[in-house]
Design a binder for these strands. Structure first.
Lengths: 347, 347
DNA sequence: ATGATTTTTTCATACGTATCTATTTTTAGA
DNA sequence: TCTAAAAATAGATACGTATGAAAAAATCAT
């Protein structure tokens, strides 16, 4: 109704100073005497004045807005990260504008266009990859981009991930140390760098130990598809192959798929975890610690990842150089009860 | 680096028209001939022009930004809702600016101040209540506010919730119909309207059936506290009370607490669910359908709630009347396996 | 106390767009 | 073909702030 809209001009009149004086009081690094500062503050509080960020953005070019592109929030890893991201950026005076990139591939481009319309100072792309055309556009607009939980070669983009390769390798060594011989893998979405690196690390460690992947199915980071993958991998009555012993361990590319796999193993196939099958996965979302799953998993340290993301963004915003950085955060294995524990395992 | 910043002025020059012509082409409801529209579009695409939303907001007062205050994202209900909210608002040309209201109570006020700095066109407050002072501020600034999943009397604020009272009553009738006599309740945070209404509905239905609450503990919407509450409620070796038979059913104020309660019952106390204890709760987050929990629960229809929230917001934005609305979405009970199913139960 | 220097202040302008007013062009009517 | 009305366009201004240049005030050195 009664649109207030207190302006710096009104404050200036009440305080008996010029509009620019008011502005300087609210601009860090500008000169203002104690006396006028006091007068302005007094007038501002009586009128309830607060600077209009959008007007400030117009002239200074600093919108205090960070654009966040995210494809889906079902995997609890992302809400967790967003909460931390938003909190940390808030402390630095920035705020997060959300853009959902629906699964339809093509519209990521249009989403980024929308982001740029808001004159954001930086973009965080979570679980999403950018076309090189898009990356160029952001670059030429001078807007830093950080990929979160995805890496991408060739575009010169900054990215922050967990060390998926060594994390995958750790999972393999854990299963091998426990004496598993027939080890399966349920993959994530084939296009995702996380999927690729986790699998590379896993199979590399198997090979190094003279072992090899016993079975592989595709789960596409979806619970339904992971259940189906588990059925294919573990029901030995599949007619299309000759009889084959079922795996005695499985590495699942992320926790959410692992939940589906465990449920399928236990409640559909009547298998015990970890007695019949060891299950290990990747992420360590909160539900992994819930006793019903009690999942042994490789932890993505969301806190660290967020911290690095914010650091890179701030560096690039404040020093117009867009020198890209690629960060991989170490990912420890969290031993719980879903996979047989090797004798004498300590760390 | 090379800040592009294509302006309507540059487009105008290339197209051989005035800046205002360019503006009118991009403003719906303004007159422009086919010829100039074509010329402008051509020039715009060659230069890569897109209107600057912030500049537009300056003069039109329409920022296309909706502020979202949210306290925490651990409960999957909220990420779910945010995804839907953001998607729906995106379709209408709005975008969501996130503000985390850390648990410290006092700073919700400062968070709302920050929101207003961005000249948002509306505010959605999820799982948060506003001081009356704050509500007034928003009202006098002409900015619509919708409480999401909380209601609040007296402030004249719009709110969208599920029908927590009747949902709680449904839970009670379900347990009663299954023959349960000793029914416990694990409460959420005492200040929350959801907690209050669910409990009211639950106890009202018990009373109506001539029954009464057998035990009550506080869980504060926290998994740890819910576990502790379950221990207090179900371990009959607590020394501070005389021997008391344990409840044979429990209504937990939300799903996440119910997961903790089920884990505690099963893995700490050695009780079977639902054979020894029926568990029923509220929300129907995705994990409730996971087979390890297979939770019978009252569904909050996030999709409907979001739709109503967006509708109210749009109505209030486009018709400067701030007539508040209170919406309660019907909440069906989703029968799964965590609570004994009454004989002949169909709906 | 006086000029030199620094700090503070005001004034004017710019940011990129929408929109009001005035003007020009197009269309319609006879 | 000429006039009246309608449509389209250009020009000017405003939104609320930051900031460079110029002016004023305060501080300092001698």
């Amino acid at each position: 109704m009664s649109k207030d809209k207190v302006t710096s001009q009104q404050v200036a009149e009440l305080a008996g100073v010029s509009q620019s004086a008011v502005s300087r009081v609210y601009t860090s690094g500008a000169s203002a005497s104690k006396k006028t500062t006091a007068k302005v503050h007094k007038a501002a509080t009586t009128l309830g004045y607060r600077p209009n960020i959008l007007a400030r953005a117009m002239v200074s070019g600093k919108s205090q807005i960070i654009g966040l592109v995210v494809a889906y929030l079902e995997n609890q890893f992302y809400p967790d990260a967003i909460e931390k991201l938003s909190t940390q950026l808030q402390e630095k005076g920035y705020h997060v504008l959300i853009f959902m990139a629906s699964k339809t591939a093509g519209n990521i481009d249009s989403v980024v266009d929308e982001i740029l319309d808001y004159q954001v100072e930086g973009i965080i792309a979570a679980s999403v990859t950018l076309s090189s055309q898009l990356a160029d556009r952001c670059h030429s607009a001078g807007i830093p981009v950080v990929l979160f939980n995805r890496s991408q070669d060739g575009e010169g983009l900054s990215c922050v991930t967990s060390d998926n390769f060594s994390g995958g390798a750790k999972a393999a060594r854990f299963l091998l140390a426990a004496g598993h011989k027939k080890i399966g893998y349920i993959a994530g979405s084939e296009g995702a760098s996380t999927q690729r690196d986790r699998e590379f690390g896993f199979t590399a460690a198997l090979q190094q130990a003279g072992s090899t992947l016993y079975a592989r199915e595709e789960g596409d980071f979806s619970m339904e598809k992971a259940s189906a993958a588990a059925r294919r991998m573990f029901s030995n009555d599949t007619p299309n192959t000759a009889f084959k012993e079922r795996p005695d361990a499985v590495f699942v590319a992320n926790d959410h798929m692992a939940f589906a796999v465990m449920d399928t193993l236990r409640f559909e196939l009547g298998l015990r975890v970890p007695e019949d099958v060891s299950v290990i996965s990747y992420d360590d979302v909160p539900a992994a610690a819930w006793l019903a799953y009690n999942l042994t998993t490789v932890r993505q340290r969301a806190g660290q990842m967020v911290q690095e993301t914010v650091r890179i963004l701030m560096e690039q915003i404040h020093s117009n150089g867009l020198q890209s950085q690629q960060i991989a955060i170490g990912s420890p294995i969290i031993v719980r009860g879903s996979a047989r524990i090797p004798e004498g395992w300590d760390s």
